[in-house]
Design a protein around this nucleic acid. Sequence first.
DNA 1: AAAATACGTCAGCGTTATTGACATAATTTT
DNA 2: AAAATTATGTCAATAACGCTGACGTATTTT
Lengths: 174, 174
Amino acid sequence: MKGNDRVVRQTPERKGAIEFFDQPLTDEGGIDFEIIEGFFFAYRDFISDPDAILERSGFGRAHHRVVHFVNREPGLTVADLLDTLKITKQSLARVLKQLIDSGYICQLAGPEDRRQRKLYPTRAGRELALALAEPQHQRIKRAFDGMSADDRRAITRFLTGMQNARDANRDERQ
Amino acid sequence: MKGNDRVVRQTPERKGAIEFFDQPLTDEGGIDFEIIEGFFFAYRDFISDPDAILERSGFGRAHHRVVHFVNREPGLTVADLLDTLKITKQSLARVLKQLIDSGYICQLAGPEDRRQRKLYPTRAGRELALALAEPQHQRIKRAFDGMSADDRRAITRFLTGMQNARDANRDERQ
DNA sequence: AAAATACGTCAGCGTTATTGACATAATTTT
DNA sequence: AAAATTATGTCAATAACGCTGACGTATTTT
C-alpha cells in the first residue's frame, strides 16, 4: 500500500478521530481492478438471462446447472455430477428430485454397476437446456462481434487459464 | 433441435416407454457450450480465492462486493451502492452494518445533502480490499501469461461486451 | 460374511437474496 | 409554512441454495 497521502481524518460527532480513505483504489500493486469488476458484471448479467426463463418454471440456477451438465454428458452418474458441480449430495438431492419429478431428467440403473444412477435428459430436459443456452449464446455472439479468430481463441484460453487445474484425482466429499 | 436420431426409448420397470436422449449436447444451433461452461468454471474458481480469506473474518461474498466498491469509489452513497450491486436496501443493510460495526467502512453525512450517507473505507477496509484482490490478481496474471497486448485487449472487450448496457437512467427499486 | 460403495433421505442451520410495511430526518415543492 | 418527496434505516416473513451430521438400502468388493 502507498503512503499516507490518501488518508483523511475527521471527527464526526466529536467522538475521536476516524481515519478513512477518500481516494479511489485504482492500480495499487498493479492490480487489474477493471478486469475484476468486468468479470463480476459480465458474469452477473450473463447469468441473469436464463434466470428469467427459469423463474417461469419455478426453478433456479442450481436446476440450470444440473440440466446443463446432464445434457452435455448424458449417462453421467450422480457422483460424476457432484464432482463437476463441487457440491454435496444433500444439496443436489432436492434439485435433482424436482427435475426428475417434473420430467426433465430420468434415471437408469448403471448396466455394469447397478448401484449407479445414470442421468439422462428427457425431451423436455433437452429443450430446456437449449432454451437456457440460447440467450447466453446470443450474448456471447454479441460480445464476439467484430473480433478476429485470434481474439476469440484468446478468450477461450483466458477462460481456461482462470480455472483451477482440473483435478485428475477426485477429492472425496461427504 | 435436430431430428430424432438422438432419441432412445427404454422401459425401466415396465412402466411405459420413457423417451430420453443419450447423445451429448455439443453444437446444436452453433451454441458455444465450451464458452458457457468455461465462464461458469472460471468465475467459480475466481470467486473461491477471496472466499477463503473472507471465511476467517466471518464475512461472505456480499461483504466482499461492498468493500470492493467502497474502495473503488470512496464517498459513494448508499443509493449508489444499491444501484451498482442491483440488490435491495434490505439485503445491503445487514452486510453494511456488519462492515461498519467491525470498522472496515465508515459513514459520513453528505456535505450538500445531509440525508445521504457517504461511505469510505477505513485503513482496515482498504487493507481488506487489497488482500481480497491479491489472489484474484495473481489468477488473472496467470491466465494472461504469454498473451499479447492484443489478446489482453480482446479479453477486456469481451468482458465489457458481455455486460448489459450500463443504464444511464437508474431503475427505481424499493 | 463383512466391508465398502453409490445413492437417497431426514433434520437442522447459515448466507444471501427477496417483498412489504413503516419510521425518521432532510430537502424540495407548492 | 405545510405538504410531498427523498435517502436511509429497520422489523418481519420468505425463499433459494449451500452446508454438516446421521442413518438406511441396495449392490459390489474383499
